[in-house]
Simulated scan of single mutants.
Amino acid sequence: MEVENDYRALADTIIAFQEKYEWDFIKVNPRATYYAEAFGNIYNKQNYTDVLPELVNYPIKRAEDLDFFLQEKAAEYNPFYEQVLLAKRVRKGVGDNIPILQTLFSPLCILTFLAGHNPYPGVNKPKSKRESELNVLIEKNPAGVKSALEKITEVLKRYVRDTLENEIDGFFYSIFGHGDEGELAADVYAEFSAPYDNQIFETIKEKGGTVMFHTCGPASHPEKFSQNKYIDIIHWADQEEHTPSLEKDMPWLNEKIAAGGVDQNLFKDNNRDKILNQAQKAADARKGLPFILTAGCGLPVVTNDESIWALKQAVVNGKK
């Protein structure tokens, strides 16, 4: 975990990973907390639980704190600028011919972090933080939520411009579980996420960037987002029980490029044969169509090397 807190070391690790496996494009995977650090979250980076360090303090503990958050000084841009330098170093290390996508979380996901919560799907909300749950913040102070989201969005737009001006090709944009109506009602998403997402998408497109959109979890509803004119690629966990499976005929995809194919949970152990089987089925289903073969979500921290090689073999086989 030490590597992700030093942009030079992380860039060198990403470059080495690319040199080892020779992927068709690079998704930069920075530390998940840098956005929240810029707006006031404090972490103990010596103590991790899975992908996140221990949260020490956060600015929004109740709805009233949104007003204080808005009155505080501007965001600390250094955590963002480190990521600009990270992407720039990766570009220099891999050359000009490999597409690079930087990872970006939505403003609503960042607000979730700033309210002390983990936005990953399926994570239990601590009883001690009920006053800072999104639905509570939205119910008690909707204007404050929107103003906070606008503040976050403006910083992200600056970051997008800086990143794309350094020869990066686009963004892997995650809304975590906010596509799941059990997590966030559709009308709430339409009011409190979509307008800010679209501002960022517009900025990406103004700079000629690609948008790879990730909707996370077992009920992620990628079909809800396929009409968005800014999205180029939709990535979801197609192996989950309540998500659309990859098929030849997916009219709802609206000519977007599908990405996925393999259950990310298989990478925890050496599941070479299962990975190859799922990958082959996905490749057959999308044969003759634009398609990105990848895990359906982020790889586990304990990913097995043999399983990664199995995915690489599937990619090579698919190109023959």
Score class of each variant (00 low, 15 high):
Lys268Met: 07
Ser220Gln: 03
Asp284Ser: 11
Glu241Tyr: 09
Asn57Glu: 14
Phe69Met: 08
Ser147Gln: 15
Ala279Gly: 15
Glu133Val: 06
Glu133Leu: 11
Ala36Ser: 14
Gly95Tyr: 09
Asp249Thr: 11
Ile110Ala: 05
Ile98Gln: 02
Phe267His: 04
Gly182Asp: 13
Glu64Trp: 00
Met1Cys: 06
Gly260His: 03
Ser307His: 06
Leu85Asp: 08
Asn141Ala: 07
Leu266Asn: 07
Phe267Ser: 05
Glu150Phe: 04
Lys205Glu: 09
Cys216Asn: 04
Ile233His: 00
Ile26Tyr: 00
Gly260Arg: 09
Lys129Phe: 05
Ile15Gln: 02
Lys20Pro: 05
Pro53Arg: 02
Gly217Lys: 01
Glu64Gly: 14
Ile292Asn: 06
Asn44Trp: 03
Gly217Asn: 02
Glu191Ser: 08
Ser226Phe: 03
Val56His: 04
Asn317Asp: 15
Glu167Thr: 05
Ala194Ile: 00
Glu306Trp: 01
Asp50Asn: 13
Lys88Thr: 12
Val51Thr: 11
Gly261His: 03
Val188Met: 09
Ala190Met: 08
Lys27Met: 11
Glu2Asn: 11
Gln46Leu: 12
Ala87Phe: 03
Ile60Gln: 07
Gln264Phe: 07
Gly40Val: 06
Pro251Gln: 09
Leu86Gly: 01
Arg31Phe: 09
Gly122Met: 04
Leu184Tyr: 07
Gly116Ile: 01
Ala283Asn: 07
Gly122Gln: 06
Arg8Thr: 12
Leu104Gly: 10
Ser174Met: 01
Asp284Glu: 15
Ser147Cys: 04
His117Ile: 03
Arg272Leu: 06
Arg89Val: 01
Asp96Gly: 08
Ser307Lys: 01
Asn97Gln: 14
Lys92Trp: 00
Leu266Val: 01
Glu206Arg: 12
Ala115Ile: 05
Phe225Cys: 05
Glu306Ile: 00
Leu164Met: 09
Ala11Tyr: 04
Glu4Thr: 04
Asp238Ala: 11
Ile98Pro: 03
Leu289Glu: 15
Ala16Pro: 00
Met212Val: 02
Trp236Val: 02
Ser245Tyr: 08
Val94Met: 06
Ile110Glu: 01
Thr215Gly: 03
Glu37Asn: 09
Asp96Tyr: 11
Gly288Ile: 06
Val262Ser: 04
Glu37Arg: 10
Pro53Trp: 08
Lys287Asp: 10
Tyr7Ile: 01
Ala279Phe: 08
Leu85Glu: 14
Glu4Pro: 00
Ile292Gln: 04
Gly208Ser: 05
Ile275Cys: 05
Tyr35Ala: 13
Pro244His: 11
His242Asp: 14
Arg272Thr: 15
Thr203Gln: 11
Pro251Ile: 11
Asn166Ser: 10
Lys224Ser: 12
